[in-house]
Design a binder for these strands. Structure first.
Lengths: 356, 356
DNA sequence: GTGAAAGCGCTAACAG
DNA sequence: CTGTTAGCGCTTTCAC
């Protein structure tokens, strides 16, 4: 750590005042006369003073720092989310520090401990699981907490914590309906981790859609993608090996959808003529020509920013009795991986829905 | 910030010893007898003690934290790099905190200040520019510094700082040679920011390649992509509007290459038959079927890990006179965006070089 | 208006 | 072997 840095003591000596006065003067406290304030500020600037964050936070019990946990940074969805949180925090003169949990509960816990020990003023968490007693403990302690993207799902805790999440139900519903209207009746689903709220809700919604539309639910059409490319690739192959394989696949994330896409193409099949494909998240690489993955998604960056904003509000209002529950409405982005189906939309209808 | 947490004082009271003894006991200092050590540790665990990082760092002047600056997290190259740094740091029981600089020098400086004020033990920087006097100041102060991906380029400072960077010269050379051997003689170059080491070296290398091969250097074939999609898209359009447009394009980054790809396809041209395309970085989305962007690249994640490792070594050995300069050899990843050229490689040669 | 003093939670130098 | 003391750099309360 840097040594020999200028402290308020040094400034105090130079200005013939006490450290306390320097401290006050630097935060423009009216207690100090305008003249000495100016003088002290001038000297501080001249000496290149930089406040010691650690000392300040230690005594004031305030760090202007938000702790964040996300599964990975390399997942472009979370990279965007993280950037949103970072930028959002900065807008309110806060900073963020993050830890990657790799969807491992133990890692998430140690990350939370680490962040708390570092004196963060609040936590924004994309939880590894939807039932973590550890997180419940944080809620019980009334420590500022905002869950983002993923949240707790069981009563009563799910109602006691602020969150910003996509509307997974309507999102998955939109995706399924799109496939349905295109004429698909045999739809495979690549699920995320079932113990995450996103995984559970998107799968449940898909299941519900089938039920409402009187389509028989076959468990072999639901395969586990585990929120990662490798598992999703293998899961897709399971679907493809089915004697009566699906004509369309809904993947609970674009990351997994792109892996599914590889599997389908590797099997020598065509998208969408052999199999239609739709994902969830609308990540950047879904948009490239030649990929043009249809997807439902929200503005991920904004979701991060919103989470940061709510966090700051929570911190500053101290005991806010209000719980903020923000659900972001997803949009359907029709591209080229679903195509048309002989029994579905008319071309005219579909073209009208086309977006880039 | 969390209040009412257990401190060593609480433990001391409970164990009938002084806070100092608790402090030592918890770090297994042999000064404390085995019995009391055990006892204190047991009590600490029972009470759920968590050391206060801020207090510890303040007094010990050691935070076990590495500060990192990168341009963006949303750029998948930097996401991977950052994940490498994070994971690398954790392996040595360090942590990392990062700031995004958006390639803006002022942001980089304030980020560095912020990180230093937070008492980081060292800085890993992907500098916004290759000539920043501010960074030179850090070197003069002998504060632990490792530059990653981008570095300072001018004497004497470029020799005074540790770095882990790709071999930009040979990388760009490989890319150009690949195009050349495929028969291309009219090659467009999309450059990065010219005041970054990566931008400068990759462009210089391309220029040099042309010179060595007696190809006239035309400045209109060098267009500025600014390390971002939007600029790269527009830059590509400039190339495409040339009356004698290039038959191939080398882009200084994959991110820009993918934007170039969009521009080329938007113009109704084919890749590679109308225009061949090769990038630099070998990012994940270059690999998708239908994109299959040829690229030169290094293992970005490892580059991050290596930077973290060197950083920790620097910190722990205190006054290490050795400067670590690591240059990572790039590999050529031949995919489908360069294709063959009537006057180039034989198909046999090229197929031999094919990698997935 | 300003100085003096206490203390945040911890470590490291002293004593005994 | 263990307790006492001082102090990291800062903020805040209490005097003057």
């Amino acid at each position: 750590m840097a040594k020999n840095r200028i402290t308020i003591k040094d400034i105090a000596k130079d200005a013939n005042v006490t450290p306390a006065s320097v401290s006050m003067a630097l935060k423009d406290h009216p207690r100090i006369s305008k003249d000495t304030r100016r003088k002290i500020q001038r000297i501080a600037k001249k000496m290149g003073y930089q406040p010691n964050f650690l000392a300040r936070a230690l005594v004031s019990k305030k760090s202007f720092t938000i702790g964040v946990t996300v599964p990975h940074v390399t997942d472009s969805f979370y990279a965007e989310l993280l950037q949103g949180i970072e930028d959002g925090a900065v807008e309110f003169a806060y900073n963020s520090i993050h830890c990657s949990t790799k969807n491992i509960l133990a890692k998430e816990r140690s990350s939370i401990d680490l962040l708390m020990n570092r004196g963060v003023d609040g936590l924004i968490i994309s939880s590894a699981e939807n039932e973590d007693p550890y997180i419940k403990g944080i809620i019980d302690d009334e420590f500022p907490l905002v869950m983002v993207n993923r949240r707790l799902t069981s009563k009563p805790y799910c109602d006691m914590v602020d969150y910003v999440v996509p509307d997974n139900f309507s999102g998955a519903d939109m995706a399924m309906e799109h496939l349905y209207r295109l004429g698909h009746r045999r739809i495979g689903v690549i699920t995320g981790l079932p113990n995450t709220s996103t995984g559970k809700e998107r799968t449940d919604s898909a299941r519900q859609f089938l039920k409402h539309n009187r389509i028989k639910i076959e468990s072999k059409l639901f395969v586990h993608g585990g929120w990662n490319k490798k598992d999703a690739y293998n899961a897709t192959n399971k679907l493809l090996k089915l004697p009566d394989k699906p004509t369309a696949i809904f993947s609970a994330s674009d990351e997994m959808a792109l892996a599914a896409r590889e599997a389908i193409l590797d099997a020598g099949l065509d998208i969408p003529s052999d199999i239609a494909l739709i994902g969830f998240d609308n990540i950047a690489s879904a948009k490239y020509k030649g990929i043009e993955l249809s997807s439902v998604g929200i503005n991920t960056y904004e979701m991060g920013k919103t989470a940061a904003k709510i966090m700051v509000e929570k911190i500053e209002n101290k005991i806010s009795p209000m719980i903020n529950k923000v659900t972001m409405k997803p949009e359907l982005f029709i591209r080229r991986t679903c195509g048309f189906h002989p029994h579905g939309y008319t071309a005219k209808q579909a073209i009208k829905k086309m977006v880039s």
